[in-house]
Design a protein around this nucleic acid. Structure first.
Length: 560
RNA sequence: GUGCCCGUAGCUCAAUGGAUAGAGCAUCAGCCUUCUAAGCUGAGGGUUACUGGUUCGAGUCCAGUCGGGCGCACCA
């Protein structure tokens, strides 16, 4: 009797429940949902289908549940017990053999354990960071960057071909102001005292860029009215610094999409921006008044129309945004994900509406908005988004706490929650710091295996002995094994919710279960077969930790 | 004023409409002659901001109130 362990686990139950329902002659359109009860005494898994179906069957939920379980027919050695409890829940208990066989599956699948095929042959575009090159990255941007990177990783686990994209504009008004800011600082280097407007970029980095220009050109540019050199220099230097900062966090983009390409005619001789206007006009959602061109969002129930082309003749940011998203459809992406901060909350509904009017399948678009970041230093909370000066630079934070802690802290809270980044905690090298707690579990396993090799000559390559795992039966072992079998579901859940935080929590509980197992079950001192089995269980745990760490972009140290 | 997010243990946060609301930290009490004590075990701690509603069942959904955050440009 051999069969492949079904992962994710939740899918395992569905066909059997379905069959039991039809055998029992129960006809319901209610969805069959299998969940893990919060308390183990209600089983490893449970379903509430009897509760849901009771009403339309006009039957008592408990009786219905009893009826259903009579027809449940699981393969041998999979489910050890099925019971009806509470108001009509059906609870399932996994057979120990089933759990340990799934641990064998982890060892067999290795780096591929937890991967799925739902996205096979599909392409996903994940856009994140997308900061214009007007200044170094701030901490607030970091959260979205790490969130986006993790989401991209999650899509990859399901077989999607992922393009990580960075959308930027190096031609707009902000860049003009940037150029002027640098020029003014440059003139100061030349000994002049120009007025520096409050609307311009105040950061120290502007002076540093001006300094570089000054040392390269001396004061020969003093009379230069053309901003291009100042703007271009600033752009190059700043973009370079942004990429360097992202690189430190392991964030890389495959595609840098320059907004400016939307202003130039395409193969058909029409600029994408203009095409949006033309097509929206055809749908009668465009009007000109007050010297500007408007998107008639009042026809969609909004309070005000939105400007697409300003009276100056320049497009407002909304227009290229729409055109940009059209390119994502035209480039053939099946899944389009936008990650951005709460300050852009009002940005996307107009884009979605426009795309809908133009007939695009906006169901493919997923938006992940992250709330803002505050930091706590010495118990004092500082709001980073508005803070001036160096302290809110992402680079400084990475210097302070390291890349792993930076990444993990950014995603260990739900993206809808305001994030309180406790800098002191992130630096701590102890259990209180979740980064260290997770990594320590991995390092501990590595250390254990080194010891096993040294003292017992244990070679983990002996996979024909994996069946020894079936000898394990203590609660600590079974709970750990059960957690391992849960991993593929956690990956899918994290992806569905666009919420890597779920993965962080899962890995934390996995680490905890391993530490308990380690505490309760002697490994190297056990009898040979048990020793091997426990080492296999440890190796499987290490594998899942690694796979999870890879999604989160956190390193897996071999020793600490 | 209005749109979106949040309000859960002293603190930071969990909880696909399910069963007695859970973790971690902090506090207190235990566990190293033994594979990393960077760890483990246990205890205390709650009117889920408030008021109504929907239902077999609400922290979760709906309406309203109060509090906090972010937006609400012919800036991006």
């Amino acid at each position: 009797m051999t069969f492949t362990i079904a992962t994710p686990m939740l899918d395992f139950f569905l066909p059997y429940i379905q069959k039991a329902l039809s055998s029992a002659g129960i006809d319901t359109d209610k969805p069959i949902r299998v969940e893990q009860p919060s308390d183990k005494k209600f089983g490893d898994f449970s379903t509430n289908i009897a509760l849901l179906a009771a009403r339309e069957c006009k039957r008592n939920p408990r009786d219905l549940a009893l009826e259903i379980i009579r027809y449940l027919d699981f393969p041998p050695d999979t489910i050890s017990r099925v019971e009806v409890a509470g108001a009509g829940f059906i609870n399932f208990y996994l057979a120990p053999l089933f759990i340990m066989r799934s641990v064998e599956q982890v060892l067999h699948d290795g780096d591929n354990y937890g991967k799925g095929s739902a996205g096979k042959g599909k392409r996903a575009n994940v856009e994140y960071v997308s900061a214009n090159p007007t200044g170094p990255l701030t901490i607030g941007r970091g959260r979205g960057g790490v969130l986006g990177d993790c989401i991209a990783n999650l899509f990859e686990t399901q077989g999607y071909e992922v393009t990580r994209e960075y959308y930027f504009n190096d031609a707009g008004r902000q860049m003009q102001i940037l150029g002027e800011s640098v020029q003014l600082r440059y003139l100061e280097k030349c000994g002049k005292k120009p007025e520096f407007p409050a609307t311009h970029y105040q950061g120290e980095y502007i002076g540093e860029i001006a300094e570089k220009i000054y040392s390269a050109h001396g004061s020969t540019l003093e009379e230069c009215a053309d901003l291009t050199l100042f703007r271009k220099s600033a752009e190059n230097i700043i973009f370079d610094s942004i990429r360097k900062t992202l690189h430190r966090l392991g964030i890389r983009h495959d595609s840098f999409f320059n907004e400016h390409t939307l202003y130039s005619p395409d193969a058909a001789g029409v600029a994408p921006n203009q095409r949006v206007i033309n097509e929206l006009r055809q749908k009668e959602f465009i009007a000109e008044y007050d010297g500007a061109t408007w998107f008639l969002t009042t026809k969609l129930g909004q309070e005000k129309d939105k400007v697409l082309i300003k009276s100056s003749g320049e497009p407002s940011y909304r227009l290229p945004d729409i055109a940009y998203h059209i390119t994502k459809f035209e480039r053939g992406f099946d899944m389009i994900v936008n990650v951005f901060g709460a300050d852009h909350i009002d940005e996307y509904p107009d884009v979605i509406e426009a795309l809908k009017i133009l007939g695009y399948d906006t169901g493919r678009i997923k938006i992940a908005i992250n709330q803002f970041v505050t930091t706590t230093i010495d118990g004092q909370t500082l709001k980073m988004s508005t803070r001036k000066g160096n302290a809110d630079l992402l680079d400084d934070l990475i210097d302070d706490v390291g890349a792993d802690a930076t990444r993990l802290f950014f995603i260990m809270r739900g993206k809808d929650s305001h994030l309180n980044f406790d800098v002191e905690l992130a630096k701590k090298q102890s259990k209180e710091n979740p980064v260290f707690y997770l990594q320590y579990a991995h390092a501990r396993i590595c250390s254990l295996l080194r010891m096993a090799l040294q003292e017992a000559g244990f070679e983990p390559a002996t996979c024909e002995e994996h069946h020894l795992l079936r000898e394990l039966s203590s609660p600590a072992e079974l709970q750990l094994g059960f957690a391992l079998l849960d991993y593929p579901d956690m990956v899918k859940t994290s992806l569905r919710l666009l919420e890597p935080q779920k993965m962080v929590e899962y890995l934390h509980s996995l680490a905890e279960l391993f530490h308990r197992f380690y505490q309760e079950c002697p490994i190297l001192k056990a009898d040979a077969d048990i020793c091997k089995a426990r080492l296999f269980l440890s190796i499987a745990t290490r594998q899942v930790l690694r796979n999870g760490f890879r999604i989160l972009g956190v390193s897996a140290p071999e020793s600490m």
